[in-house]
Design a protein around this nucleic acid. Structure first.
Lengths: 130, 130
DNA sequence: CCCAGGGTAAGACAAACTGTCTGAACTCGC
DNA sequence: GCGAGTTCAGACAGTTTGTCTTACCCTGGG
């Protein structure tokens, strides 16, 4: 299953994506006002270019119906973070992420509630991969 | 604990790091022979430059005792992967990695043995952070 | 009608990054 | 002292990244 052919995004692109996650579908104008308050025409163009690149990367969908296009994130925050973490694990240790999980559990402090949740997930039967 | 001030590494740098992880401390010559078999003087210089950058990034330690320096990874594979995953989670969702763990557990298939290990880790009392 | 204000599209641009490569100086054993 | 092997310093082209400019296209109000 081709899950993570979605490339990484740059810092500025991430800013736009975060804004879309927070505010929902928006126009360039709305995004510009949020990301560059008191920003001029050039910042508007910057956001425009960032959205164009995000669209090519498959992270943003553009609705061309109206004259003024409306942009929306085409991937949820959680899925994106998950894919990105998986990509890092893939690149660095060849896909076996169990050691990574172990390391994270050892070094991160996790609340009791979250631990409970994780325990529950671990106890569910894992669907077999073909 | 200033854990993750270690920056990311590029693809070529990662190749060198992997070689160091696999083979242990090595000289430039050994690394060049491994990474660029039948490589000439220029590849030697390439490895040299990559090691220099890795040293600056704090990923590689150089032993200058002998005339021919010996290089070693200054971070274990597991710690590096962990730090990198943590950095990604930090950048993308502000440090709370529990949702990431949840997502990974949900979407990745993990062997029963590994699940057992993770369960055990989850059951140990978490040391309180100051 | 026309034209001003907002929108899109296309691309130029400098700065930084990446991988590669060149040249000079330096050290050792013979 | 020579030559092979090493370190050091930096040049270099190709790509990426964030910014910005320009030209063009709609649409609504006078």
């Amino acid at each position: 299953m081709p899950a993570h052919d979605r490339p990484d995004v740059t810092d500025a692109e991430l800013g736009v994506l975060q804004a879309l996650w927070d505010d929902g579908p928006s126009t360039i104008r709305q995004l510009t006002d949020r990301l560059y308050p008191s920003g001029g025409t050039s910042h508007y163009a910057t956001v425009q270019k960032l959205l164009e690149r995000l669209e090519q990367k498959g992270c943003v969908a553009r609705n061309r119906a109206a004259m003024t296009h409306v942009f929306a994130a085409s991937v949820s925050r959680e899925a994106f973070v998950g894919d990105r973490v998986r990509a890092v694990a893939e690149r660095l240790c060849g896909g076996s992420i169990a050691p990574v999980l172990t390391h994270l559990l050892k070094t991160e402090s996790i609340s009791e509630g979250d631990r409970k949740e994780l325990r529950k997930l671990l106890n569910t039967i894992q669907p077999k991969m073909p």
